[in-house]
Design a protein around this nucleic acid. Structure first.
Lengths: 123, 123
DNA sequence: ATAATATTCAACCGCATGGTTGAGCATTCA
DNA sequence: TGAATGCTCAACCATGCGGTTGAATATTAT
């Protein structure tokens, strides 16, 4: 529950990424910054829906907005992705090309547990 | 909306990661596989709540369960993280050590847009 | 001044989520 | 056989989410 301090931030980042529309918006913003109307155009949902998505991205720190007159110019802000990446780095060793070292490791423990040989290792 | 085919899978993966309890569970499973009771013990919520979290992780492919008698032995399954990582790879160039090349790139476009110089570039 | 444009606010809907409690079902222990 | 254990199912609750429509606000254009 307590975890790493920046846990709430990771919550916002990962859950912002958990929606396909928002991921598509981010991808489009890597091509060029855009106003909200421009961002919304390709999507089959209302402008309001997109406006909400943008707020979610903004709260996650993944989007920056600069208001210029009546237009809001948006650009991607990649730094939070670095944070998500840092979280995943802890697990990267486990799927890396080096033949899934963890999978092997865990599998051993797993099999041992099933045989009841390793109960002392459990808390 | 259509996106990449495996979009729904990414949805499940990212939203599974968007909860601190589930991230803590994953982390604990990197230390050792465990039964559901063992997993639940450290958390201040009910066993049922943990059981639900485990189902979410399982549906995202991040956890594998083997039922041995009345105990369910769980281990982490890192492969989906690789997928999430692949998605992020597209953005990695943007925050990499090369001093945020995208930030600079986007910033240029952004400033241009604000001055109204680049309207032709917008779709 | 008026109209059009760009965006948000507010209220609502249906559904998912994270949590609870209590019952139910296998499996193991005595 | 009967009791304890490990886990899920079912029902419920409060909250949040992604979507809508309609009104409001602010800026720009006529």
């Amino acid at each position: 529950m307590v975890e790493h301090s920046n846990s709430a931030e990771l919550d916002r980042i990962f859950s912002a990424l958990a929606d396909p529309t928002r991921r598509a918006i981010l991808r489009s913003l890597t091509r060029r910054p855009a106003t909200i109307n421009e961002i919304a155009k390709p999507f089959p949902v209302s402008l309001n829906a997109i406006s909400k998505h943008l707020m979610v991205l903004e709260r996650a720190g993944l989007l920056r907005r600069e208001i210029k007159g009546r237009q809001h110019h948006c650009r991607i802000e990649p730094r939070p992705l670095r944070q998500a990446d840092a979280w995943m780095a802890h697990y990267r060793q486990f799927w890396d090309e080096r033949l899934d070292a963890l999978a092997v490791y865990v599998d051993k423990k797993f099999k041992a547990a099933k045989k009841g040989k390793a109960h002392g290792n459990f808390r």
